[in-house]
Amino acid sequence: MKLPESSDPAPVTEQKPHAMIRQDKAVTEQFVRANLGWMLAVAKRIVKDSASAEDVVQDAFSNVFKNLETFRGDAALKTWMHRIVVNQALMALRRQRRRNEQPIDELLPEFDRDGCRIDEPSMLSDIARTPEAMLLSADRRQQVLASIERLPDSYRVVLMLRDIEELTTSEVAEMTGLSEANVKVRLHRARAALKKLLSPLFEGAGL
């Protein structure tokens, strides 16, 4: 079965009572197929490596099935599952051995003694004004992904959770154990560092 290209990747979960997901084999399979793709995408963004992401999804599903009994439906099913997979991925990331990470300081903006910005103008500034430029080549996409992966995990994760998973500052604080102020600082530093890492990719010739 191929997933519909619709904006709602999990139509089945909205219609079927949870009891059916629990008992009926065909419905279970439909449920798994409807949700596995987006869950895997979330896991990949957090743990980076595909094999660990698959483990995360397995653990997340096992958690979902175990707790469907007690799921009250006061939160949307998909929101609840999203939290489960994010939490599972964060746990997996904590278990991973940290490789040598580039210190974020080298990637932060610089100012002179008077607080004036020292920054080379970047072609990145012009991109927002040219929407068709967003059709990035496969090569360019790979380079962008590699740049994201260069961010230290503790910053990259906050960026993912806030800007991509669209969790709130307080949700991210709760999930990571950071203070809300710290979440904001890390988000800003991660974006600033990424701006510095992406700038050289967009110099000179088009996209």
Partner: peptide, 13 residues
């Protein structure tokens, strides 16, 4: 320029 590039980095990401 910096803010424009910062926002572009967010949207490219």
């Amino acid at each position: 320029n910096y803010l424009a590039a910062y926002r572009s980095a967010m949207s490219v990401t």
